[in-house]
Design a protein around this nucleic acid. Structure first.
Lengths: 223, 223
DNA sequence: CGTTGTGAACTCATTCACAGCT
DNA sequence: AGCTGTGAATGAGTTCACAACG
């Protein structure tokens, strides 16, 4: 079959925006009808809502994957994107804050399918301790630092109230966590070696209101 | 080439990124100790984690709000940001898909406080109909178009499975909705006059993995 | 042919540096 | 003095346009 493990030549560094688009491309490419054995930049572009030039620019950054006049091999392309995004392996994560949002994320199918596994649950509410959710037992936050290290979790999902988020984040840092996905509406201050992605739901709604209010218009279909 | 429109009040159009930062500034400014009657770009910058020049550039786009040598008046500034973002008024929204995530959002405090009110709940699962959550009764999606118009909702929050998201979105469009906050992991195709903000949780985790994997591409910033 | 890959042009966004006001 | 507002410079990101190739 495909011996696609050539030397990992990286042509250029991917921007955040580019990496985000790659995630979208991956969805499209991964779901491509298995009957088809090629996919073109134009087809990806249309499915995702960006320009074909953008798609080619992004994919070219991963190496020479396409055949001129033909297109890309969906399977090879999907694998290359996974590798570039760092999701060609399993990631272990803990979840802190087993409230409504935390539970929703736990049951969200998309995570495990993409290689993310929640391996620990923590909460400060004594009433929630020892509850079992999705096969995991809720543990007290006091054990967070020790247990996170023991569980060998590299990532953490933070769904705690805003006023405790910074303290919890520091416990995670102490446990040697490498990245935090934060849903608390605060700006966390972390050491530079710990990566942070914050998803602020209220801000997203504000963005929507802003766009509606402001009659934000753009000539082509976009975003 | 393009004749610029006649917008006179605003000095320049806000980019999406700028609007997002304004939301963050608003948090900081709104919480500013009421004893203090001024706040400087440097203070905002430090709280939010951007440069002071960035803050001044963003705020200058809202008009001349600052006093040279002094700073900004927190109350006046907060109001100006709210107006610019379009959250100086109430927004009515419906929520479609009363699953775990939908429930989490419903109970999320941040929304109502910022002027967003959920005025209708819809789900396709008969078992959920007539449940009462946060004072609202769950209605069948078949009523979505008619009820959304009757409720005078301008925005919608979509927390339905991926495979039904497009159809539900079209029902909302038929009801005259103006903006959709979409949590389904799909690229929705909407008419251009309907604004769309998509929050894809799996993609955010992938972003985090990508950043961790790739070490750092961000210059060390303040502390 | 059709499609990729990419220099070049272009647009958008951020930082610099300092004039101008308090 | 301190701080804002902004032209100019820089940088990042996107599109254009076309050569290169199966």
């Amino acid at each position: 079959m495909n011996l696609d493990n050539q030397s990992t030549e990286r042509h250029q560094r991917l921007s955040r925006a580019a990496a985000q688009r790659l995630s979208l491309y991956l969805r499209c490419v991964g779901r491509w009808p298995s009957g088809e054995d090629t996919i073109s930049s134009g087809q990806i572009a249309e499915a995702v809502g960006v320009s074909d030039a953008q798609v080619r620019r992004d994919l070219a950054a991963l190496g020479h994957l396409g055949q001129r006049g033909v297109g890309y091999d969906p399977r090879e392309l999907a694998q290359a994107i996974r590798t570039a995004l760092g999701i060609d392996r399993q990631w272990r994560a803990v979840l802190v804050g087993v409230g409504n949002l935390g539970r929703a994320l736990l049951k969200y199918q998309g995570f495990r399918a993409q290689g993310f596994e929640i391996v620990g649950l923590f909460d400060s509410d004594p009433a929630k301790l020892d509850q079992e959710i999705e096969g995991l037992r809720v543990e007290p936050v006091e054990h967070l630092t020790a247990r996170t290290a023991a569980l060998q979790a590299e990532l953490a999902v933070l769904t705690v109230p805003a006023d405790t988020a910074q303290a919890v984040a520091e416990s995670l840092v102490a446990a040697g966590i490498r990245g935090i996905l934060n849903f608390a509406p605060v700006v966390l201050k972390l050491p530079r070696q710990v990566r942070l992605v914050t998803v602020d739901l209220a801000i997203q709604l504000e963005q929507l209101a802003f766009q509606v209010q402001h009659g934000d218009f753009r000539p082509p279909e976009d975003d």
